[in-house]
């Protein structure tokens, strides 16, 4: 009965939704709405344009095209695209900040 469709494994926090609390994910998470608290994923976290995250974020890769405030730790990569606005400390082996992006905080690529 547990139908495993691809859609089932995807997590999307839509633009009209706010989550205040903790998110623990085995797969990718896409934020188009608002997340406050903690966001952990074994996969990738994407903050879409219009998405707002005020949280501690831990993931494989973190891509921000929206707004993010908080500490970010990525095992692989953090990417802030041109539309992205990020405030907080970043920790990842690879960090990309695109031309036009706004960023404030400390970077640790150790």
């Amino acid at each position: 009965m547990a139908t495993t469709t691809r859609q089932d494994e995807q997590t999307i926090i839509g633009s009209t939704i706010t989550i205040d609390g903790e998110i623990d994910a085995e797969g990718p998470v896409m934020v188009q709405g608002r997340v406050v608290g903690k966001l952990r994923s074994a996969g990738d976290v994407t903050v879409d344009e219009g998405g707002e995250v005020e949280a501690e974020v831990e993931a494989e890769t973190v891509a921000v095209a929206g707004r993010l405030v908080g500490q970010v730790e990525a095992r692989n990569r953090v990417e802030i695209t041109a539309e992205g606005r990020v405030t907080g400390d970043l920790r990842a082996p690879r960090i990309l900040i695109a031309d036009g992006a706004q960023y404030k905080g400390n970077i640790d690529m150790g």
Partner: peptide
């Protein structure tokens, strides 16, 4: 569907909004 909490995802807290 304005949102999906996929398999293997745990959310603890408040989920509010429309849709």
């Amino acid at each position: 569907a304005t949102g999906t909490i996929g398999k293997g995802i745990k959310v603890r807290g408040e989920i509010t909004g429309t849709g």
